[in-house]
Every structure is written in C-alpha cells, then in structure tokens.
Write a protein that binds this DNA or RNA. Structure first.
Lengths: 199, 199
DNA sequence: CTCCAATCTTAGAGACACTATAAGTTTAGA
DNA sequence: TCTAAACTTATAGTGTCTCTAAGATTGGAG
C-alpha cells in the first residue's frame, strides 16, 4: 500500500526540511530564500509551497501531531481521574512525542532548537503553536474534570504549565538535564492549582 | 519644548493607528493593505514604515512601555522584599499600565483586543512580546531575589504567571470582571511556587 | 527676516514571500 | 496500454518591506 508515490513524497518533504535547516544554520533564517531551499532539494519553489504553507512552517515539521497526542491522553483516561495525574500524563506524552521528523540526537535537532530560541519570528510561531495546543488541552481537561474545574481554571492551569516550561527550558544550560526541570516545574505549577493533591 | 514638530508627529502616528484599526475592523487584517491605511491617514506608504517597522506593529502601539514598567517596579523595590509581593506588584503595574494609546473605554480598544485574540499572526506577535517581557521580568526577579530563587525558578514563575493569564483571560466572557480572574490566577500560580507565602 | 542645517516625507526601484492558474509530467489501476 | 488522478512546474501577479536619493518642512543662528 505504501506505494512508490507516497515514498517519493516522503523523501521530497524530508529533503526540503534538511535543506532548509542546513541553510538556516549556515546563512541565517532571514538570509535564506525559499528559492535556495528548493534548489538545494532539487525541486521548484512552487513545490516547496506544495509541502509547506509558509517558509516558517518547514521548521515546525510535524508539530501538528501534538494535537493527536493530547487527544490520545484524554481518550485513554479513566473517568474521575485526578486532575494532577491527567496534567502530568499529558506533559509526559507531549515531552516524549516524536513530532520532530528527526531522532533527538540528530545534529539538525540542535539547529532547530537554536533557531526556535534565537529567531524572533520563529519563537513567535512556536509560542503560537504552543498556545493553540494549550487551548485544546484546556478544553479536554475541562470536559474530563468538570465540575471540579471551570473553564477559566482549566485554561489557567494549562497556560501556566506551558508558559512555565517554555520559560524554564530557555534557562537550562546545554547538556544539562531538561527532564528534571520539566518534572519539577510541572509539580510546582500543579501544586499551586491543586494544593491537596501534591504527589 | 514640545514643539510643533513633535506634535505633528504624534498626530500622524495616532492617525495611522486609528486608520489601521478601523480598516482592520471593517475589512479584516489580511484584507487591509498598508497602502489603504496610509491613504486613510493621508500620508504615503513610505511614511507608514517610518512610524512602524511592520504592518503588525501598528496594532501593538506602545506596548514596548511594558519594559519600563517592569524596570520601574524593581527600581522601587526594597531589598529583601518578598518574592510573592514583587510578583503581584509587577502584575498589578502591568495590568494598569497605559500602554495602549487609547483610553480603555475607547471603541478601538475593543477592536484591538478582538484582533489580538482572533488573528493568528497577531496572537503570535502578542505572545512573543509577552514572552520577551517575561524574559526581562525573570532576569530582574532573579537579580532581586537571588539566592532565594535560581534563574530557572525565576523564569518558570514569570512564565507560569504570564501563560496562565493569557490563557485564562481568553476564557473570561465579555463584560465579566477580568480583574478578579487576574488576581485569583496569580495567587494560585505564586502559591505553587512559594507555598509558605500564601497571602 | 533670512538662510542654513537637521529632520521628515516621499517617489522609485527592487527583493522576496506567497497566490492563482494552467499546462506538463508521472503514477495507479483498469 | 490507456485513462484518470495526483504531482510538479512555469508564469504572472499582489503585497510587505528595504534602500537610496531627492524634495519639503521646521528650528535656530545671524
């Protein structure tokens, strides 16, 4: 079923991502044109926009999968599950999701991380995608936990978790353990919202 | 000292903001060109970019003042002040700062709020500016409170507060009291980070 | 009042992201 | 092998934004 057509598309897409990240690394994001990216991937500029709606989209690759990750957590949740547990499970699932089109130890993963932190336009795109996932997360959390939480509380909780993680991870020195920071940060935020439920 | 020159510039700037917001309201953000905005304000398109670096900048007006608000809070802080107090003071100062080039009851204020929430590109810009203010806030908070907080904790705390507020305010129905939501949300986030300091 | 210098506005040319359309090419399946 | 669908591409155009240089306006000195 995975015909020659699909395989070719997959390889073109991957070639575009690799070409883009490599050029962004060498020349900067603003210093690289879509024409250069597509030339390096040996396709026409029109084809680039066939795969990615915008130039910045190529950096975010498969991040849209986060929506499905959130849905999956709540689909698997038992009714009446603790709010704190649901939040932590979601964070864990998001943190370990393979939504980056490269293995974590691939050199271009580091390039992408550096771009997301350093190029304002890309940080903005990252924050927006984060916030949109947060909207969905809040909605699911509300549905699963009402009336223990109202809509405002659910949004504040998910917003706080995502906001804290984005800011905190920015301060973690390279090579240091991000996982510990994630766990500690989530614990503290959740504890503020749900004092009785400290795990 | 406030010569005729400065006054004229101020009026041109205000005219551009009003023209832009009015047209965005009538035709949508994407459906409005810089040429239309500058025509309505009776200046050339080149002049528009003299006042605003980008089309989206016109929506954010004087939001850069938030940097000075943050600096002001920490300049006025006494050494050894409680972390919780500093955070709450900063939120209060940010919430009441006049950084919107209109009185809060001006009709265009509502238009701007609707645009920031509804147009993805503008929400992204808003989130980015929020995050940048958060970076500065975290740095100041760390300087004022070290070693009671480390850099990661300071960033997580400010990120959580800003993230929670952005998400929560999105859920508050029109006309309902945003102030109460702000206060309650900040209390909960701060309490998570500083359990002994509940106010 | 006059003129100079600084500042502000503007026109014009151009780079680049992105859209729309239509034509050409490749693949899947009958 | 032939056809229909899917994919790629060229072309032309719109709109944001940059740069440069020329024109207009203002503040201050003589």
């Amino acid at each position: 079923m995975t015909g020659l057509r699909e395989e070719k598309k997959r390889r073109t897409r991957q070639a575009l991502i690799e070409a883009a990240l490599t050029l962004f690394d060498e020349q900067g994001y603003d210093g690289t044109t879509v024409a250069e990216i597509s030339a390096r991937a040996k396709v026409s500029p029109a084809t680039f926009f066939n795969y990615f709606a915008t130039k910045e989209d190529v950096v975010f690759a498969d991040q849209h999968l986060y929506d499905e990750v959130v849905d999956g957590v709540f689909a698997a949740a038992e009714p009446g599950e603790q709010v704190a547990e649901l939040v932590k499970k979601t964070v864990h699932s998001l943190a370990t999701a393979e939504a980056w089109s490269f293995p974590l130890d691939h050199p271009l993963t580091e390039v992408r991380t550096r771009l997301l932190a350093g190029v304002p336009a890309l940080r903005a795109g990252y924050l927006l995608r984060n916030a949109v996932v947060g909207d969905r997360w809040a909605e699911k959390l509300y549905e699963a936990c009402a009336p223990r939480l109202d809509r405002v509380e659910a949004a504040a909780l998910t917003g706080a978790v995502l906001g804290a993680l984005e800011a905190a991870l920015r301060q973690v020195p390279d090579g240091s353990s991000a996982t510990e920071v994630v766990l500690a940060t989530v614990d503290r935020v959740v504890y503020g919202f749900l004092p009785g439920k400290k795990s």
